[in-house]
């Protein structure tokens, strides 16, 4: 298949940086630079390192270079009626596969179909010593060695620069329908829990300003049956696109926080709050730090201002024992701390 392989070039730059102890800023489409602390250093550009390397619909696996644009990847899947089931946000059309996996962000379907990490089958990476390493593979099940490829999802390149990635893909559903209900958040989520328990084919949920929206994905007949059981008004499917790519007005707030909580925790009827993932994901504007509040609710918070790289703490602080093990893991992959240093935490 076509594309452009920059592996050797990238490896040389990392080897050099390792010798000179030069910090590297890994970037590709720059669509997700807001998601983390600002990194100072020499640019390691992954854009141009692109191309789909293998894709066979019957294998449910796609392998591509990390700089491959997500829209290109999805177009290829579309031809076979398949999809990235975790619905990664694009933010801009420059978004790349590597960025999606490195940030580990997942869209509206996450609570129902799984997260980015759940679909990672294998990865080729270059660690902080400039060694090109391959973990996992292109098969569905693989327990040889530690699951380093999944560990890369969400590590934002701090453990290794993603070079190639293999993802599990899924068939698209035969049909998709959105149902809307005028109901408050607490009551709406109670219904949702019951419907999930009944096994209704729900693939996304959103509560915002007094409306609960649910997406159903299944066969035509099964959706009809679910609708007659659940009620609600059939509306268009655009909402999920806006949520997935974070173009919904809610995401335009500069003081936005992302709260990840146990789904049934403390669902209040706050109008400004947008609730996804069956209650497990809350988007909320606040000028105060929400780390402590999230911790008390057994979850975590992320500062989520789409427009700016932040010098402030973006991610929930880690407990001391966890921070210590994180540092040792970072050391194991990137002993001189040259890969996106401080991107996740100042200490990493």
């Amino acid at each position: 298949m076509s594309g452009n392989d920059k592996t050797e070039q990238l490896r040389e730059q990392i080897v050099k940086a390792c010798r000179a102890r030069t910090p590297l800023v890994i970037n590709a489409g720059n669509s997700k630079s807001f998601y983390g602390r600002q990194v100072e250093g020499e640019a390691l550009p992954l854009d141009g390192h692109q191309g789909i390397l293998s894709y066979q619909a019957s294998e449910l696996v796609i392998t591509a270079r990390s700089g491959t644009r997500l829209d290109e990847l999805e177009a290829a899947l579309d031809q076979h009626n398949q999809q990235l089931a975790f619905e990664p946000p694009l933010h801009t059309d420059q978004a790349t596969l590597g960025g999606a996996v490195a940030c580990g962000l997942s869209g509206p379907a996450r609570a129902f179909r799984g997260a980015a990490r759940d679909f990672v089958l294998g990865a080729k990476v270059i660690n902080g010593k400039g060694e090109l390493l391959q973990f996992g593979g292109q098969v569905m099940k693989n327990v040889a060695g530690y699951d380093v490829s999944r560990l890369m999802a969400g590590a934002q390149g701090t453990l290794g620069v993603l070079i190639e990635i293999s993802l599990k893909v899924l068939p698209k559903s035969e049909a998709e329908t959105t149902l809307a209900f005028e109901v408050d958040a607490a009551q709406g989520h109670q219904w949702l829990r019951n419907w999930l328990h009944e096994g209704q084919p729900i693939s996304a949920s959103c509560h915002y300003q007094g409306t609960l929206s649910l997406r159903l994905s299944s066969t035509e007949n099964s959706i009809k049956q679910a609708h007659s059981r659940m009620g609600g008004e059939i509306v268009g499917n655009e909402l999920w696109h806006q949520l997935r790519h974070q173009t919904h007005p809610c995401f335009q707030q500069d003081n936005l926080w992302r709260l990840s909580l146990p789904p049934s925790t403390n669902i209040h009827n706050e109008d400004d709050q947008l609730i996804e993932w069956g209650g497990a994901l809350r988007w909320k504007a606040s000028n105060n730090d929400l780390f402590e509040q999230a911790r008390r609710l057994h979850g975590h918070a992320t500062r989520y201002a789409l427009r700016a790289a932040s010098r402030q703490q973006v991610f929930q602080p880690l407990q001391p024992a966890m921070l210590a093990i994180h540092k040792r893991i970072k050391q194991a992959f990137d002993p001189h701390s040259i890969l996106n240093p401080c991107r996740l935490y100042e200490e990493l």
Partner: peptide, 14 residues
């Protein structure tokens, strides 16, 4: 955690 994701590295996978 009891939420669907956690801050930091995916040690659950590891």
């Amino acid at each position: 955690s009891d939420a669907l994701d956690s801050p930091g590295y995916d040690l659950l996978a590891l």
